[in-house]
């Protein structure tokens, strides 16, 4: 088990290196010049040249690349080209907000989605099933930012239950949760829609299995057949989807963070892109890659908890 973990994390190293390389070169190919963006349209050619020199952008590309890789590996991710603050510090500042939001929406999605999917499967092709399926389809097809704006209009502006600007909140847990609520509901609904659909189809498959017939033949009560005999078998595809979807969720959180004006990785990366902040962009990509690697690993470990047939080696 421990051996498996170490092996998996070691495998992540080449992935990270490859991503870093790709990001480095893509950033350089992007049209636009950080020095130009920082100094503005009116800046003189000399000033831009001076700044480019200071930012190290005049060195040969290969030298820049070597310097960047060496830095990345030793934990020195450089400073933001725009603000001058260390990249690592900036990232660490906002990462709790993103983790908080992602975790809350996954939990919300599971709490809503799993029972709804089971319920829908048990009432296959009946009214309840159709309503659930249409509902989840709506949840999937609604763009995150549209739903976010609707949530804001109703719950923050009309009803004033939640703050309009979810700055993340600070201090007491209550305030933090209040700031978290709308963005988490926004992403949680999308998550729930996915989970409902996967749970439903997976449950339908499991309910047709021979061992479910065996459970009925043993006289196991219907509720126990559903929760003990079926659900655990049905959860593997659900875990896969949650794992895969976490990646998408982080993408969706960009829009959510912007609409709710909430700090987080998403907002940071959009800022870095528009300002051609190469160093910040690179640092964020490392973080994203690392998150995906960790999520995949956690997904694989969860399989083992659900299914005794899964072995790690």
């Amino acid at each position: 088990m421990l051996q498996y973990l170490v092996k998996r994390l070691l495998f992540a190293v080449p992935t990270l290196l490859a991503v870093l390389t790709v990001v480095f070169f893509i950033a350089r190919i992007l049209p636009g010049d950080p020095a130009q963006v920082i100094l503005g349209e009116q800046a003189s050619a000399e000033a831009i040249q001076a700044l480019r020199l200071r930012l190290g952008l005049e060195r040969p590309l290969i030298q820049q690349y070597a310097g960047f890789m060496a830095g990345a590996l030793t934990g020195d991710w450089g400073s933001s080209m725009v603000t001058g603050r260390p990249v690592l510090g900036e990232v660490l500042n906002v990462i709790p907000y993103t983790i908080e939001l992602t975790a809350a929406s996954v939990i919300l999605g599971a709490i809503i989605g799993i029972p709804l999917g089971v319920w829908s499967a048990l009432h296959r092709n009946r009214l309840i099933d159709y309503v659930t399926r249409i509902g989840s389809l709506l949840g999937l097809s609604f763009p995150a930012f549209v739903m976010a704006i609707m949530l804001l209009l109703v719950f923050a502006i009309q009803l004033s239950w939640f703050p309009v600007i979810s700055s993340g909140g600070s201090g007491s847990l209550g305030v933090r949760l209040q700031h978290l609520a709308l963005p988490a509901i926004n992403l949680g609904i999308i998550m729930a829609a996915y989970i409902t659909r996967v749970t439903r189809s997976s449950m339908l498959e499991v309910l047709g299995e021979d061992y479910i017939r065996t459970a009925h033949a043993k006289g196991v009560p219907a509720l126990a057949v559903v929760w003990r005999h079926s659900l655990r078998n049905a959860l593997i595809p659900v875990v896969t989807v949650v794992g895969l979807y976490l990646g998408i969720l982080i993408g969706n959180s960009v829009l959510t963070e912007i609409v709710f004006n909430r700090p987080g990785l998403g907002k940071l990366i959009v800022g870095a892109l528009t300002q051609r902040d190469y160093t910040m962009l690179q640092g964020l990509m490392v973080v994203y890659t690392f998150v995906i690697v960790v999520v995949n690993l956690l997904t694989d470990l969860t399989y083992g908890m659900i299914d005794p047939r899964v072995k790690y080696q």
Partner: peptide, 16 residues
């Protein structure tokens, strides 16, 4: 009244 089935490979619950 009890029943046993044809397929022993699939008639037992794999996670219990």
């Amino acid at each position: 009244i009890a029943m046993i089935f044809q397929e022993p490979m699939t008639s037992l619950n794999p996670v219990l």
